[in-house]
Amino acid sequence: MTKQIISVTINGARQTHEVEPRLLLIHYLRETLGLTGAHIGCETSLCGACTVELNGKAIKSCSMFAVQANGAEILTIEGLASADGKLHPMQEAFWNEHALQCGFCTPGMIMVSKQLVERNPHPTDVEIREGLDGNLCRCTGYQHIVNAVRAAAKAGA
């Protein structure tokens, strides 16, 4: 099967690679580019640990082929802090509210929470929980995650 050349802007840097069409975006990010912040959890599009932003929209990178992202702009957890190392307000809020235990789900949680607050700057707790519906925390630390999203929204993340 024919390999294809894709060109993608990832965290502001242009990347061009020849890939097999069946290469999943998460494998392209982790194995081709070495960006291991997005995690492979369930591989069945349920857990959300692989969440990244594609053209400004949070997506599950385990359920998309890298070739579908040709020409797109992708933001991963590695690209969220500014160049001087200053954390994104959502990262800051997760830090302050201790919204993680083992940390496995955290990159996906932060990426989807960023989208949630961008679309709904003043979410209720119910709306936060609904927004996190596609992300699982197997430490079951949901309350602190909800606290963090609420705090980030209040801080204008």
């Binding site: 599009s45 959300g48 969440t51 929209k57 949070a58 997506i59 599950k60 359920s63 998309m64 989807v112 989208q115 949630l116 927004g131 519906d133 596609g134 992300n135």
Partner: peptide, 9 residues
């Protein structure tokens, strides 16, 4: 339907 990520795609 699904969740934020699924509804985006």
């Amino acid at each position: 339907i699904g969740d934020i990520q699924v509804r985006n795609m």
